[in-house]
Amino acid sequence: MNKSIFTAPKSLDELKTALSKKTHNTYIVAGGTDLAVGMNKNKIYDFSLIDITKIKELKKIEYKDDLIEIGSCVRMVDLEDNEIINKYVPSLSKAASCIGSTQIRNLATIGGNIANAAQCADTVAVLFAFDAEVEIINSIGEIRKELVYDVIQGIGQTTLKDDEVIIKVIVKGQEANEYSSFSKIGARKTVTISKINACIKLALNDNKITDSRVYIGSIGVKAVRSLLIENALNNKVFNEELKEKILELGSKQVLDSIPKRKSKDYKKIAVKGILDDIFCDIEKRRNLDE
């Protein structure tokens, strides 16, 4: 029988050491909300764990040189309530607030949401739209940076090597003329896994959209960038008429992305719901600004 080792490094240095001793059945745990479920399901009874939540710097949110640094062990509930995130990446607060139950949000972390690489991961669509990067450490203490978009390769697949751990997420916050929002639809109103989700980030000059990023989740192995919608948004006036047009393009995007999946019949309509939510939310935020 394998010996089970449970370690909880208190610093990146200790983490490095722990990673150097990692075996094939050692798991990195932060919130554990996916890991524990997976271990039960897959009947994994002999295992070792490295708990990274005792490393203080992984739990910080900091605003540094125009960039927001989010420690990988920052929990969903922290993202939901944090002033910096609320101000500079409001769609991330929104996405975090929609994940699972209160109990889940009290444990689940942003690093875990990325590393788990679920098709429907809610914070991921936002991180894509913001071109967020992650910092990754390995067992010899090297730190590398990679776009979240590139880290996630497919469902449950990432570029993370066996001895690597995400330690930080770096996001450039939105400017005063930028707006972003997130919405999702699941099987019910709350405590639900996304059937489809999306994040839109817009730059507005007066009423005119000068730049946009649109990502739709759960219509591909990872959130899909919709150039179709971005092109329709750019250089247009942000109004009700544009919204109606975007809703239709949302349906088209779904059909383009999953032409053969049975779920397309539903998602092509449901996508209008989330796009409508996002438009209304951005409209509301603009009115608050004025």
């Binding site: 639809i185 019910r188 109103k189 449901a270 719901g273």
Partner: peptide
């Protein structure tokens, strides 16, 4: 009924 999501309250 949400005409888009089909969710019922």
């Amino acid at each position: 009924v949400d005409n888009y999501s089909g969710l019922v309250e």
